[in-house]
């Protein structure tokens, strides 16, 4: 017997990352744009998705892939709003990964959608580590969560293309320093787009959907 050292230097999540690349290729071949929406539980992912459907449905055919540890409540809401909705029950897993999205994409009628919104499992930690193969990642923060979240969950704020700040209608009632919050985002992710919105009053929603529509349109060119 002899003992030798073997150099590896491999990313531990490389298998997931490779499958994510395949997912994006499948989407591109089908001419479908996809975004990954992440947030803590209760920040308003499904409400934002339904509001997005209502504002874009005359221009784009939207689909939704929903990841939850149990129930089809969120996918049912999206389906009721007229979206093609696929439910992934992760069976307790804390995040979606590229394998789960790959399975969902095979179930989806890709020729009947232009834009797929993937609703990740509500969690501010794990989803940031697992690429899915979507074209953009969006984080939804919400006012009642507090203004310190970028400082406490930096990985989640680092890897996203846009941050939606939901429930701004609650600003008069909640201690939330917007400047401190925005400064935290800027340090982690300089220049990232931010969209203050309220799904209750409708404030700011068209800024978000205009941006999203532009992302889809750019991808087609």
């Amino acid at each position: 017997m002899k003992t030798i050292q073997v150099s590896v230097v491999e990313e531990i999540l490389s298998a997931n990352d490779q499958l994510a690349v395949q997912n994006q290729r499948l989407l591109d071949d089908a001419g479908v744009f996809a975004i990954n929406i992440m947030s803590s539980p209760g920040a308003g992912k499904t409400s934002t998705i339904v509001a997005t459907q209502n504002l874009l449905k005359d221009r784009l055919r939207l689909g939704m892939v929903d990841g939850d540890i149990a129930t089809t409540i969120d996918a049912d809401r999206a389906a009721a709003a007229g979206m093609q909705a696929i439910q992934i029950n992760t069976g307790g897993n804390c995040h979606l990964d590229a394998v789960m999205l790959s399975t969902a994409l095979r179930e989806m009628k890709l020729d009947e959608v232009d834009l797929i919104i993937v609703e990740n499992v509500g969690n501010l930690i794990c989803p940031s580590s697992f690429k899915l193969g979507t074209h953009r990642s969006v984080l939804i923060a919400s006012i009642p969560e507090g203004d310190d979240k970028p400082y406490k969950y930096p990985p989640m704020y680092r890897g996203v293309d846009a941050v939606i700040i939901n429930k701004v209608d609650l600003l008069p009632y909640v201690k939330f320093n917007m400047d401190y919050f925005i400064a935290g985002i800027e340090m982690l992710n300089p220049g990232v787009k931010t969209f203050p919105i309220s799904c209750v009053t409708g404030e700011g929603l068209t800024d978000w959907t205009d941006w999203l529509y532009e992302q889809v349109a750019q991808n087609r060119r």
């Binding site: 002899k2 073997v6 150099s7 230097v9 999540l13 680092r158 800027e186 340090m187 982690l188």
Partner: peptide, 28 residues
């Protein structure tokens, strides 16, 4: 996360998200 030297918030993460297997010792 601001710079302790000049208080700037124009800063960037330069390390800390590594997650890899670098090497193995094996017996042959």
């Amino acid at each position: 996360l601001a710079c302790p030297n000049c208080n700037s918030i124009r800063v960037q993460v330069s390390a800390g998200d590594e997650f890899r297997l670098d090497a193995l010792d094996i017996e042959t």
